[in-house]
Design a protein around this nucleic acid. Structure first.
Length: 362
DNA sequence: CAGTCGTGGAG
DNA sequence: TCTCCAAGACT
């Protein structure tokens, strides 16, 4: 028996006993196949996002939109509000685009067809093909890259070494149970072959692991040094009208937080922004600036607050107050701070918020 | 290829 | 407090 078959066998045996129970997953080696809609939705949500963060969103989405036709028929703003807090909002925009294609023709069952859909790249296409349709696709994500780098002691740095790692993974991919195989590798990477301090004592592949033998597993995979993260500054304006309406805008459909609700404010730059409110009023400066960490910059946001009877803003519009959970996290921070400054306990009494956007808990 | 694009949990 | 980084896609 070739080495690759032994590795695959050990892996599936381990998975049959140790597979994580997840809402979008069927038990290993089971007769039933996972719903393509559930596989697709979970895979999109899981892009660069932890399982723990995804779970409640997956439950909420599938409860509210039980199938792809229901999602395709949803209003854009409802889906974006439901996605708020999960990050990488282009995923939600592409999710809708994709749903509206798939609702007509159904999900493609092959990798190439899936790859052609919005928001589905090489990883997700392979994962859906393998998990939902049993296609022996070579699934490559961050977990599997790490497992391959360690198993075969590949010491060149990412991302240059990726093709080599994919070739290694291809050599392990079985013709049968391809979905279980891919999920087994990801579970192994998430629970045993973790980035720091890998639990090699409990690894079903230890006997085959070249980097373990060499004592360097924890140092792999190598990565290129990362660039320093700049700090940007910005100004945001929270305005509450006497009737309870608040000033918000829908951000431009592309770019940072594209399509999401947010406070009106300046651009975020490394230069100090000027105070330039959307209308003249008694603006009160928030004493404590709001900080937030994005992937490629830190943000320091200065919040100004005004309570007014009426105003004609140059940007955004007054609307019934949405639930804070309808806003992306940085905007939710500023929004909740605005209410607090207005001396309103917005955390405990969701009743203050309008019902127009179907407030979630939080 | 390298930059853009969020967020929060873990150590 | 700080660093790392998670089931990546798109330009």
């Amino acid at each position: 028996m070739p080495e690759s078959a032994k590795i695959g066998g050990n892996l599936l045996t381990w998975y049959d006993a140790q597979a994580r129970v997840l809402p979008w997953r069927v038990p290993p080696n089971s007769e039933q196949r996972a719903e393509p809609y559930h596989v697709w939705l979970s895979e999109i949500m899981l892009q660069q996002t932890t399982v723990a963060a995804v779970k409640p969103y997956f439950e909420a989405f599938t409860r509210r939109w039980p199938d792809v036709a229901a999602l395709a028929a949803a209003r854009d703003e409802d889906v974006l509000a439901a996605w708020a807090g999960l990050g990488y909002y282009a995923r939600a925009r592409n999710l809708l685009k994709c749903a509206r294609v798939v609702a007509q023709s159904g999900f493609p069952t092959d990798e190439a067809g899936l790859l052609a859909l919005p928001g589905i790249g090489p990883y997700t296409a392979a994962a859906i093909a393998a998990i939902a349709y049993g296609v022996p696709a070579v699934v490559m994500d961050g977990n599997i890259e790490r497992v391959m780098a360690r198993l075969f002691d590949e010491r060149e740095a990412l991302p240059a070494v990726k093709p080599k790692l994919k070739a290694r993974a291809a050599g392990l991919t079985p013709a049968k149970r391809a979905g279980d195989h891919a999920q087994a590798l990801m579970d192994l990477g998430a629970t045993i072959c973790i980035p720091k301090a890998p639990r090699c004592e409990r690894c079903p592949l230890q006997a085959h692991c070249v980097s373990f033998k060499a004592g360097v597993a924890a140092e792999l995979p190598k990565r290129l040094p990362k660039k320093p993260k700049p700090t940007r500054q910005g100004v945001a304006y929270f305005a509450r009208r006497a009737d309870g309406h608040v000033l918000l805008e829908t951000r431009p459909p592309k770019g940072l937080l594209g399509g999401m609700l947010g406070l009106v404010g300046s651009d975020w730059t490394e230069e100090t922004p000027v105070f330039d409110p959307p209308f003249a009023a008694q603006w009160q400066r928030h004493t404590k600036d709001i900080t937030h960490v994005f992937t490629h910059f830190n943000l320091n946001l200065t919040l100004y607050v005004a309570e007014i009877k009426a105003a004609n803003p140059r940007a955004g519009s007054f609307m019934p107050a949405p639930a804070p959970s309808d806003l992306p996290s940085i905007m939710r921070k500023a929004y909740e701070a605005g209410f607090l400054i207005c001396d309103i306990d917005c955390g405990a009494k969701l009743g203050q918020y309008g019902k127009n956007r179907g407030p979630k808990s939080g």
